[in-house]
Design a protein around this nucleic acid. Structure first.
Length: 222
DNA sequence: ACCCAGGGTCATA
DNA sequence: TATGACCATGGG
């Protein structure tokens, strides 16, 4: 009977409280990729309306997006904020995506190679890359976002100011079993952290022990 | 009227 | 390598 790592215990609490989330909230792979870029430092509800705009304009494909002018694309992205920056980033991503043979061809790359390829796109940083790796390419990577940092540091598991790769490695090595179940585990874990963040300070009993709202001072170790 | 959101890039020191 | 400025809308 191997002893369970605190990260596994946190996962159990989240899963028991909220149940399976079956993420990412999108209709297909490409929509996952678009959402991953648009949600950078932005509330998801804003992203939803931007995606709805693209969909209504029949522009939710890489080819349609690269053929739009920067101004028109930015107009569709208005509700998601940073619309000029994101128009450029989305354009960069779609161009790269098409140049590299879209899903079929990219899916042949091993995870590390694919990760570096994603990071080579201007506008795709570590978290966006990992969102895409996990939710569009079904690769076993642990997504480190602001919520994960806050949650794990409030559980006393990390300091909180470690580098991205340090934390990703910490989470992955302590959770990986080596089977393909890892993908499902990481999928649910990130989704549960986000859903918990949205419900924190409203839902018991979890919030009383570890609240993700930055204004809340609860800080309990498992 | 503030505060913040499922980040990332670029310029400076 | 490590900070800081910047990007911008919408909900609490």
């Amino acid at each position: 009977m191997p002893k369970t790592h605190p990260l596994q215990q946190v996962y159990r609490r989240l899963f028991t409280t909220y149940g399976p989330q079956h993420w990412w909230p999108a209709k297909n792979r490409f929509e996952v990729m678009v959402g991953a870029i648009l949600t950078q430092n932005t509330a998801w509800t804003n992203v939803e309306s931007a995606i709805a705009n693209l969909k209504a304009a029949h522009c939710l494909t890489p080819r349609a997006i690269i053929s739009l002018s920067k101004a028109k694309l930015a107009k569709h992205l208005t509700p998601s904020g940073y619309f000029n920056v994101k128009a450029q980033r989305l354009h960069n991503y779609c161009q790269w995506y098409l140049e590299h043979g879209e899903y079929r061809k990219l899916a042949k790359l091993d995870t590390n190679t694919l990760r570096h390829a994603l990071l080579s796109v201007n506008g795709v940083g570590p978290e966006t890359a990992d969102d895409i790796l996990l939710y569009a390419f079904a690769r076993p990577v642990f997504v480190i976002d602001a919520y994960a940092r806050r949650l794990l540091s409030r559980y006393g598991l990390i300091q909180g100011d470690e580098g991205y790769e340090t934390l990703r490695h910490y989470c992955e090595t302590n959770l990986k079993t080596g089977s393909i179940d890892d993908v499902q585990l990481f999928n649910e874990y990130h989704a549960l952290i986000v859903i918990h963040a949205k419900r924190a300070c409203r839902k018991k009993p979890l919030c009383e022990n570890c609240c993700l709202n930055h204004k809340c001072s609860y800080n309990t170790v498992v």
